[in-house]
């Protein structure tokens, strides 16, 4: 009985960590720019498919991963410069449509350059399950958890101890004041998109050995990541991580104990409940209306 629970918990935490990484990407961009980047899921796709592509060229795995992440970061920069920047002062609806357009564009481009089939990526260190308390966990799941922890710590250091990190925080609190203080806010925006792309690509690469990857993989992962970010109160990095894990574990428990059919609905039902009862998210503070 307990073994079963543990099994559901393992798969919940694994996928939850991925949602957390994606949600974190949403939070960082939102912090820097008040933009919700609906193309976040495509970063996840680019990470996974990019790795498949570079491995296909005969490159060793670490190099392929590095190139895939770089490619995604460049796309992130491009997205900020050519799609978001020119519409900075536009209303929310407009920005939402621009980033959704970007996500469709990127998916279309990926389907054109690559294909629409499923691809597998080899696990980082074997695929023989490790048994813990009667439940099995994959070495890849440990990789996911380990990498997520490392990334979160690194981000924390970055935001609190580096000049660039601090200027991102400053910009998120008050863009005008930050600008007056001599912070290059446009650079901060660019950085935030690059950083988000890095997070998304990492998530995509980490999950690929477990769930296969294809050009449409970013849609659901992106939306769930958005749920995680909103659940945590938009713009709260730690909230996004908590939100991601919460969504992942609830999903796994629902699939295990209630109905696997409604697994995907869980994230959205939680989010609706939270929004209706607490319109600013679980860990959210003040409202976000821009007048």
């Amino acid at each position: 009985m307990f073994a079963e629970f543990l099994q559901f918990l393992f798969s919940g935490i694994t996928v939850g960590a991925i949602y957390a990484l994606v949600g974190l990407g949403f939070a960082i961009i939102y912090n820097a720019s008040n933009v919700i980047n609906f193309a976040q899921g495509e970063f996840v796709m680019l990470g996974g498919m990019g790795t498949v592509f570079f491995i296909g060229l005969g490159l060793p795995m670490p190099l392929a991963v590095l190139l895939a992440v770089s490619l995604t970061v460049i796309v992130g920069f491009g997205l900020e410069r050519f799609a978001v920047e020119p519409a900075r002062d536009a209303p929310i609806v407009t920005l939402i449509i621009i980033t959704i357009g970007a996500s469709i564009f990127l998916r279309g481009a990926a389907q054109l350059v690559w294909d629409r089939n499923f691809h597998s990526v080899a696990s980082f260190s074997g695929s023989d399950p490790i048994m813990i308390g009667g439940a099995s966990i994959l070495p890849q799941s440990l990789w996911i958890l380990g990498c997520t922890v490392v990334i979160v710590i690194a981000l924390h250091m970055f935001f609190n101890h580096s000049m660039t990190g601090k200027s991102i925080i400053a910009t998120s609190h008050n863009p005008l004041a930050a600008k007056l203080m001599g912070i290059n806010t446009s650079m901060v925006l660019l950085m935030s998109f690059g950083l988000s792309a890095l997070l998304g690509a990492s998530a995509g690469i980490l999950i690929a050995p477990i769930s296969l990857t294809y050009t449409g993989v970013g849609i659901m992962l992106g939306l769930k990541g958005f749920c995680a970010a909103v659940l945590g109160g938009l713009g709260k990095p730690m909230g996004a991580i908590a939100g991601g894990l919460l969504v992942g574990i609830s999903e796994a428990m629902t699939a295990g104990y209630i109905s696997s059919a409604y697994k995907d609905a869980v994230a959205f039902i939680i989010i609706l409940a939270v929004l209706f009862l607490m319109p600013n998210g679980l860990f959210g503070g003040r409202g976000t209306e821009r007048v």
Binding site: Q7, F8, S11, I210, S211, L212, G216, M220, A255, G256
Partner: peptide, 8 residues
């Protein structure tokens, strides 16, 4: 489109 069937 599910990518994880471990629960089932």
């Amino acid at each position: 489109g599910d990518t994880d069937m471990t629960a089932q």
